[in-house]
Write a protein that binds this DNA or RNA. Sequence first.
DNA 1: ACAAAAAAGATTGTATACAATATAATTGCA
DNA 2: TGCAATTATATTGTATACAATCTTTTTTGT
Lengths: 152, 152
Amino acid sequence: MTDQTNGFDPLRLDCQLCFPLYVCAKEIVRKYKPHLDGIDLTYTQYLAMMVLWERRTVNVRDLGRILTLDSGTLTPLLKKLEQKGYLVRARDKQDERCLDVSLTEKGEKLKDRAACIPGKVAPCLGLSPEEAKTLHSLLHRILAHLPETEEG
Amino acid sequence: MTDQTNGFDPLRLDCQLCFPLYVCAKEIVRKYKPHLDGIDLTYTQYLAMMVLWERRTVNVRDLGRILTLDSGTLTPLLKKLEQKGYLVRARDKQDERCLDVSLTEKGEKLKDRAACIPGKVAPCLGLSPEEAKTLHSLLHRILAHLPETEEG
DNA sequence: ACAAAAAAGATTGTATACAATATAATTGCA
DNA sequence: TGCAATTATATTGTATACAATCTTTTTTGT
């Protein structure tokens, strides 16, 4: 029998960190959606484009490591972005296993239309700059620690 | 032309909160996976079971509001949990539109096997109790603020 | 050089998520 | 009372995610 009183029960949703993290991530994506609809990108496509806006060219392996996504997710997503004309996919001549993804001019231009989006979504969180910095640092701390607990 | 120097560029992945949130949520689910595999639950199924372990019975509407999931996600998920024998689904006699979801004995017993999981995953985050509390409160602050910016 | 191992993507299958729509039941109001 | 609007869930379609497997290419060990 588990705790039916108001005491601490680790299986209660509101005693956990994973659940608010899960909901926050989903709800923030929802906040992005109306803005991303305007430039015909999904949230994950937007993440991939952000990497390209920084680097112009990436191969799928590096992109997957940056975004923590595997080829099962990236292959169809990059094909869609190629269809939209925002990038081109081409095998690396030196190593035909690798697929290089490169920004097109159209993809480059899209950056100007995306530039205002983070500034529109950020206020929705309702955090002060210090709180945002604290959250940023806590999340990065978790991300740095997680790999250390493999097979744990 | 956007900032190519090391200056602040809001479109850089590492200048945003949404991206580490997105990755953290995914990676924590990944930490849960080996433990949940042992009790034949996916993460989302586990969330639904946690609500039932607290309340024994919920209707789909309330469950959806608690988990921020709609019927498109919940209907197939609850059918799977019913197939596994962890819950039963039955129309509310007073209001045949509503579907009540109730814990079975088998589902009740599953709680004992799940009880140890949060304690196994929590250390993977690598946060002190104070940091965890800070993160918890920041996330709940965001969740409380987000609805205030509807249509914003 | 050559077979085995490794690496990179692509494919397949399962499970979310959510928008949009459909259906059935209930409520509200003229 | 009767019908329009609302509510609750189900269904359909699209887009992730990821495990497992497959194919192709490259590297490695001998």
